[in-house]
Amino acid sequence: MMSFILRRLIQTLIVIGALSFFCFYLMSLMPGDPVDMMISSNPNMTSEDVSRLRELYGLDQPVYKRYLNWVSTLAQGDLGYSRTYRVPVTEILGPRLWNTFILSGLSLIFSLLVAIPLGVFAALNQGKKLDYFINFFAFAGISLPSFWLAIVLILIFAVQIPLFPASGTMSVGTDMTSFEGFFDRIKYLILPTLSLSFMSIGSFVRFTRSSMLEAMRNDYIRTARAKGLSRSRVLIVHGFRNALLPLITVVALSFSSLFSGAVITETVFAYQGVGQLVLASIQSNDFNVAMVSFMISVSMVLTMNLVADLLYGVADPRITYV
C-alpha cells in the first residue's frame, strides 16, 4: 500500500514537473512578451533600450535557464507579480481558488444527487418509456456545448424572467458574514452550478445505469431474491452498493472535465474563479498569473485523481495495491 502511494505520488510529481516546463516553453512561444508590449506602448524606445530591458527581464536567456530561474523563485515562495492587476499573484489566487472550489463542489454534489437516482430508475425500468426518456436526457447532457447551455440559461432565467443575476460572483458591497450575504452568494451560484452540472449529470446517469444493470445481473442478486429478501433491500443493499463502486472511478475521472467545464462556465458568467483566471491571464499575456493558475489547476486535478485511486481501494476490499 505504502509503496503504491509513493509510486503514484512520484508519478504525479513527474507529470506536474514535465508539464510546468512544457507550459513554460509554450508561453515563450506566445505572441507578445513583456518587452514587445512596452515597445508597442512607447514608440520612442531605442533598440538599446529594448536590449537592456530584455536583459533586465532575463528574456535574452534560453528558455531552460529562464525556467530554472522561475522554479527557484517559486521554491522560495515567490509566485511573482501580476502584470494586469499589479498585485502579487498570491493575493489574487486565494479567493479565486475558494470560489472555484465552491462552484465545482456544489456542481459535483448536485449532479450526483440528480444522476444516481435517475440512473437507477432507468436501469430498473430497462427498455421502458422512462428508460428511453432518461437515456435521451443523458445523451443530450453529454452532447451539450456547456457554454451554450450557460448562454441559454442566462437568456431564460436572467433576461426573459429576471430571477437570477446574469453574471458575477456576488453583489458589490454585501457583507459576506451576514445571512443576506450568504443568500446573495447562493443567488449568483445557481445558474453557473446548473450549467456546470449538466454535462456530468449526463455521463453519471449513463454510467450509473449500466453499472446498476451489471450489478443486478449477478448471481448473488438472484440468491438474495431467492432467500426472500424484500425487493427494496435487494436493490439497495445488494444491487446499489455494488453498482456504486465503479462510479468512484468515473467521478474521479470527471474532475478533469469538471475543471474544463469550470473554465467555460466561469468565463460566461464572469465568475471570479481560477478557470476564468487561466483564460483571462493567457489572453492578456499576464505570464506569472497564467503559469501559476495553470499549474494549480493541473495539480488540483491530478491530486483528485490520486485521491480517487486510493479511495477505490478503500471501497473495494478485493483490490490490493502492489
Partner: peptide
C-alpha cells in the same frame, strides 16, 4: 498522464501560442 489533465485548460494554453 495526458488523460488525467484538464484538457480544455491545456488546449487553451496550446492554442494561445
Amino acid at each position: 498522464s495526458l488523460l488525467s489533465l484538464p484538457l480544455l485548460v491545456v488546449l487553451i494554453v496550446v492554442s494561445a501560442i
